[in-house]
């Protein structure tokens, strides 16, 4: 098939891509941190903006929106055209516990765009037969997370009910700013967990970020429905990144 094309402009005075901007962008991407390259299409200048950097005015609003949605776009601000190219790390989900809920949650999360890793030291649970096509680590979270640390583009769901397995990764997730931290258990179970986490030095502000009882309140009554409830809350947390706390989060 044929495409017609035209040169809209060719301006010798436009700036070219600054090698420093490219290098900085690549190192941010490798470190799994969000960054945007903002190009002023009137003069060709580039500027690297990291997520959370203050940028004033209408352009700042457009950049904040690009970080939230992950969508790059050309925008017109006060007569100048800017191109905002936003680079977000691939979001992912780490599930603690190779349990029944995880068997439903792992494929659902993957379909929704969150690659999954499951960690459970109990080798009877973490079997390839129970979890085909999922990355499984039959080791303690302490060991796995020391070589593959959590970050702000990672969600963590702790589903074992076992403090020996769940507590450490919950604290690690809060400390590394995971965009979603969910913990399975009744209000009573969670109250005991809060006491243990406080004893480990977790602050009240961090504890308020834990989604517990886990998931949207949709009356979920079996593992697959609970997985849906967790995924709904996780997506909400992902799409409201950068808003103050999760104040608007549905229950």
């Amino acid at each position: 098939m044929r495409w017609a094309y035209s040169r809209l402009c060719r301006k010798a005075w436009l700036r070219n891509m600054d090698p420093y901007v490219l290098k900085t962008l690549n190192s941010e991407r490798i470190a799994r941190r969000a960054a945007a390259v903002v190009t002023d299409l009137n003069d060709g200048r580039h500027r690297l903006v990291r997520e959370g950097d203050p940028v004033a005015g209408e352009l700042g609003d457009a950049i904040a929106n690009a970080f939230r949605t992950g969508k790059s776009s050309a925008v017109n601000v006060t007569g100048r055209e800017f191109f905002i190219n936003v680079h977000l790390p691939q979001p992912r989900l780490v599930i603690i516990g190779a349990v029944h809920i995880s068997q439903a949650l792992a494929p659902m999360a993957r379909i929704a765009g969150f690659p999954v890793r499951i960690i459970d030291p109990r080798t009877a649970f973490a079997t390839a037969e129970r979890f085909p096509d999922v990355e499984l680590a039959a080791e303690w979270p302490e060991e796995v997370l020391s070589s593959a640390p959590l970050d702000s583009y990672t969600a963590l769901a702790a589903l074992t009910h076992d403090p020996k397995i769940d507590d450490f990764p919950i604290k690690a997730a809060l400390d590394s700013g995971c965009f979603y931290v969910g913990a399975l258990g009744s209000r009573k179970t969670h109250a005991k967990r809060v006491e243990r986490l406080q004893a480990m030095g977790v602050s009240d502000e961090q504890i308020s970020r834990i989604d517990a009882p886990i998931g949207l309140d949709i009356g979920a009554s079996n593992p697959a429905e609970i997985a849906v409830a967790i995924l709904g809350k996780l997506i909400h947390a992902y799409r409201s990144r950068g808003n103050s706390k999760q104040s608007g989060a549905p229950d």
Binding site: W3, A4, Y5, L8, A12, R15
Partner: peptide
């Protein structure tokens, strides 16, 4: 020549 360009492509009518 170091001069950036903006190109527009569309399916020919």
């Amino acid at each position: 020549d170091g001069a950036p360009k903006m190109l527009e492509f569309g399916v020919a009518d």
